[in-house]
Each structure stands twice: as structure tokens, then as C-alpha cells.
Write a protein that binds this DNA or RNA. Structure first.
Lengths: 189, 189
DNA sequence: GACTCATTGTACCGCTCGGTACAGTGTCGG
DNA sequence: CCGACACTGTACCGAGCGGTACAATGAGTC
């Protein structure tokens, strides 16, 4: 039988979903094994450090995705407005328009926050910084750009919480629309 | 020996802190017992339904505090602006200016979300509704008031996540200041 | 065919979990 | 003085936890 989890990328994605759905504490090795089709033997072969290493790897995997699809456009687009728009589109698709939760945000609130504190701080810090840079290049004063960036990222995180609480993805869609306006992407409507 | 946990209110506050610090899954009965000074016998005497009943009671306890200190001012102040200002002050003090996390927000993201879905939806729903009403009374169009209310509550929740992630309470202070401006409380500066 | 070595399944470890049972214990009203 | 009863400590339960040990397995290589 060919293995079900073909590569490390797919494996990390599956484990990530388990963490997302059950939280760090709630994601037992039995659940992870069931989701990946791998036994403990295999799991500990790939992640000798056990659950903590899995958590660290999953965060790094997500971080990497954001680096490529969210931060890079912000940094590299010649037109900062285009970069910001691409960031918002990637964000919307990643969170499945609010039907998916931010794993790193959840980790920031719950138990494993001390375990992964550095990675979590880094992730959000880079998001805010890169957005602030893009806003500055778009013409905002540096201080104003920082505030606006922080406001936008917080709005996204808060909307994910509210959307999950209300079980209503529209909450997230409305929030993204407001962020878009606030960051100056749709001048008049 | 007089008991350490004098009344149900104080007891729920202690248990709430354990949930806040360790999450629902992570808050073991051993931790709860240590925090309250109560053995399992006593805990199951007060909460025959076990951990789930504790969770439910803690949420209700927090909900009650918000009802009195956050929602009531929004609803009952003759001047809606005063009500909104009082809500923000209560919010700031409750979350200890960002050093404390929103337990119900954390529950919304993690495992017990299905268990407590109704209570969680209710809590955030009432917060948004009452704020929207106050904003409408302050002169906003109904639709605009709803959007603004949702934006404000999401901004607060997101700021709590970011503040915890960055381990920097200033993130929350800045967010509250922006919300204050956005809701029209400080006209010019 | 024999060696290598990444990969896997299985049995097992000690521990902690949430929860139960129950025999006290202290403090009441009568 | 006595029963009633709210409260508490302790011992215990089966289950599941994260983690370890190890013996297969099987494909690739010489």
C-alpha cells in the first residue's frame, strides 16, 4: 500500500487541521494518527520530539505559507496597494472566508502559548510590520501606518473569533470589507 | 478551619482563572482543586455535572458580570455616549488593560466550542446588539450602527489576541483608543 | 542473495485524567 | 443530646494520555 500521507507538507497540513479542530491539548496522538493514517511508530519517526515538535513544525509550516502568500506580496509588489489587495485575498482564501480559525491565534490564547511564544510573536509581528511598510510606501506617515497595520491584523483576528462564535461566516466577510476600505483600497465604494 | 473559597461567586472567579490560564482541556480537576483549595468531593458537591457544569457556570458568571457592568450602561444610560464610554472603561478594567485574555473568546476558538456554543453566541451577540442600539440612539443609521458595533467588538477581541501574542499590553491600549475615536467619543483628539 | 536503512505496527510503560463511592466531620435546629 | 444535612478527604475506578522499545517489513543497492 502506498502511504496515505505522501510528503511532509501534506502531513503537516493534516496534523494542523487536527490542532485547529481540537486545540493543542485536545489533539491526542490517537486523533493525529487517525487523521494521517500513521501509527505512533511513524509519527515518532518523523517527529522524534513528539507532540511539541509537531506543534512547532505545524506553526512553521503555516508561517511559511503566510511568508509566501501574504507577506511576500506585501513586501515585493511594486504597487503597495496591489500588494495589500493580494494579502487580503490570500487571507480570505486561507481562512476559507471565516469558516476556518487561526491556529496560531488560538495557540496565542490557550495553554501552549508559553511553549510556542517566540514563534507566535514572530508570526504576528511580521504580519504587522510588513503591512505597515506597505502602507508607508502607499503614502501614510510611519506612525499612522503602524497603527493602521495593527488595527487591520487585529480586526482580522477578532473577526475570526466572532465569526466562529456566531457560526456565521458573513461576520468575517464584512470585517474584510471594512479593512479593505480602511486601508484605502476602495476609494469611494 | 474556615473555608478558603467563601462563596459561589469567589469560587467561580477562581475556577475561571484556571480555565483562562490553561484552557478548558488543560484545566484539570487537580489544578482547579489546587487553585480553590477544594478537594474533588467538594467540587463535585457544588458542581455535580463535573467539569462541563463548571465551564457552563463560569461562562454564566462572566456573562452576568458583563450584563451588569458592560451591557447595562449601554442600555440604560440616558446619554448613549456616556454609556459607550462606561462600557469601554469596564472592558478595559475587566481585561486588565490587555494583560488578561477573554475566556469566552478562547472557548469560541478551541475544543469546547460545541459544548458551550449557545452561551458563547449569546454573549457576543448581546454585546454587539447592545452597542449597536446605543450607537443608533447616538444618531447613527441602524445599518451603520450594526457594522460599527461589530467592528468595535471584533477590534477588542483581536487586540486581546495580539496583545497576548506580543506579550505587550500597549497593543490593547492602542486598540481601545482607536475604538474610542471610531465610535465618536473623542471628537478631535 | 545479503546488507542497509527508512518506515511501520504492536505491545507496553507509568501517569494523569474525569468521575464515583463513601465514610467521616462539623454545625445546625429541635 | 440527637438526628439531619451540608460539606470534605480519601481511596479507588477504567480509560486514555504521551512516550518508548522493538521486531517486522520492504524497497534499493551492491
Amino acid at each position: 500500500m502506498r502511504r496515505i500521507a505522501p510528503d511532509r507538507d501534506g502531513l503537516l497540513a493534516m496534523i494542523g487541521e487536527v490542532f485547529r479542530e481540537h486545540g493543542y491539548e485536545g489533539a491526542s496522538l490517537a486523533l493525529i494518527g487517525a487523521a494521517t493514517g500513521l501509527g505512533k511508530g511513524s509519527l515518532y519517526h518523523f517527529f522524534p520530539g513528539g507532540k511539541e515538535e509537531m506543534g512547532r513544525a505545524v506553526i512553521a509550516h503555516i508561517d511559511c505559507w503566510f511568508e509566501e502568500n501574504v507577506f511576500a506580496p506585501l513586501r515585493d509588489s511594486t504597487d503597495p496597494q496591489v500588494g495589500i489587495e493580494r494579502m487580503l485575498a490570500a487571507t480570505d482564501s486561507y481562512f476559507r472566508s471565516g469558516r476556518r480559525v487561526c491556529l496560531i491565534g488560538a495557540f496565542a490564547l490557550e495553554e501552549p502559548r508559553d511553549l510556542f511564544a517566540d514563534q507566535i510573536r514572530d508570526y504576528f509581528g511580521r504580519w504587522v510590520t510588513h503591512l505597515a511598510d506597505a502602507l508607508a510606501r502607499a503614502g501614510h506617515q510611519p506612525g499612522e501606518a503602524s497603527e493602521l497595520a495593527e488595527e487591520a491584523v487585529a480586526a482580522i483576528q477578532g473577526a475570526l473569533t466572532l465569526a466562529r462564535a456566531a457560526d456565521d461566516a458573513d461576520v468575517f466577510a464584512r470585517a474584510l470589507r471594512r479593512v479593505r476600505v480602511r486601508l484605502g483600497l476602495t476609494a469611494g465604494g
